[in-house]
Design a binder for these strands. Structure first.
Lengths: 222, 222
DNA sequence: ACAAAATACGAGCGTTTGCTCGCGTTGGTC
DNA sequence: GACCAACGCGAGCAAACGCTCGTATTTTGT
């Protein structure tokens, strides 16, 4: 009898099994990134992972559960990434440097994990992936708002919310353009995106905000 | 015998037939907008259009050709829209007014034709739709660049290209946020988007640009 | 050493999907 | 009014899909 299921905890997974699960998730990730979720057949995923269809269903009760597995891995990876990018340090950096660092890190991350990129920004994913991506973005929004709040405590909460939302949407719109461009053009596009965001965020949360717009370097009025 | 096919020109369509084709395209548009292209079954589309599967295939050789029909209609509608928005007049307007008008028109258009919206910006469409949308955006980019060129003839061609690309990507990123927000919040979000674009475009193609500026969005001397 | 559980296989099931086919109806043309 | 193309129907075919099942092998616990 099959003893399937993955997170029901009813199966004592062996080392071999955990390896297989990772193999299958890798294969599924690639397949879905290539042709979309509905079009990635379970048999094809199994074949790509070097596993029989029967074995696949030993670890995942159905196709949706494979997607759940991918989502779980992505959520964890994403959290790590944004923990690094939006740490306390981010509130103390120069705004331009901050923007540049995040955009750069985002670009290299998407380059290194193209499957994640296609999965969550592409147009061939699935409604479920869309929802997860929305939730993740909401979390990023909260953290970004916190960074802004620390940078500019005098700004109202509603404005902070607007700033964070617009910033995320902008990055979301601009990043595909950067990623689809030939690599030698990326630097110029990132610089342009930086200018765009700097012009928008600078007056609100940058050092040059308000009273006399000092050109100063290294001041912390508070 | 069936005499199918749509654009092969081998069939003398009657008035009744052309009406049926429009019915089918309407139904297909709605169905695809709801569940995505692959998941919208031909039988369901036929039923929604009040037509038998056999009749559907009288007008469209296969499922892809239905998509072609939708694309054709959208392309025409889109061209009309952008003809209005990016006419010669656009080069003579105040930059802020121009941005506001386009954003507003875009928002109302997407509200009135939700199917188009989901089809071309949603994540449940199809690779083919993606390609078409890319081509359309390229066309919009050309026209926008032309508007910018008329507004600021002294700006280099490469810079104009960057400005147009970044502008389109930004709008593409910001618009979903506006559309998904509750209607009473849209005005605030559009105002915010306007500020974002004005800050970026103003120094380059706005009336407030100055010849002597060496800072900010660095202009390459030549 | 031995039983039980976990892992592995792949042919093939039941269902769904895009599409066909045979046949009947409507409408334009002479 | 006779003829023929265009229009219309819907049962059902062939292919593809997600998934199962009987069975064989490997690992773990004792």
């Amino acid at each position: 009898m099959t003893a399937g299921g993955s997170d029901t905890g009813q199966v004592r997974r062996q080392e071999r099994g955990r390896r297989r699960m990772a193999q299958i998730l890798d294969a599924a990730e690639d397949a879905i990134a290539e042709v979309g979720f509905e079009e990635a057949t379970t048999n094809a995923i199994a074949a790509r992972a070097g596993v029989s269809p029967g074995s696949l269903y030993q670890f995942f009760r159905n196709k949706d559960e494979i997607l759940d597995g991918i989502v779980e891995r992505y959520t964890a990876t994403s959290r790590e990434f944004w923990d690094r990018q939006l740490s306390g340090e981010a509130a103390r950096m120069d705004l331009g440097d901050f923007i540049e660092r995040v955009l750069g890190a985002l670009a290299t991350f998407k380059t290194e994990r193209p499957a994640f990129w296609v999965l969550f920004h592409g147009s061939a994913a699935s409604p479920k992936l869309g929802e997860v991506a929305d939730r993740i973005r909401a979390g990023i929004g909260d953290r970004l708002r916190e960074v802004f709040r620390q940078r500019a405590p005098e700004v109202s909460e509603e404005r902070l919310e607007l700033l964070a939302s617009v910033t995320i949407s902008t990055v979301r719109g601009v990043l595909p353009m950067v990623m689809e461009a030939p690599p030698e053009r990326r630097a110029a596009l990132i610089a342009e995106a930086k200018a765009l965001l700097l012009g928008y965020l600078g007056p609100a949360v940058g050092p040059e905000r308000r009273e006399g717009r000092a050109e100063a370097t290294g001041e912390a009025p508070r």
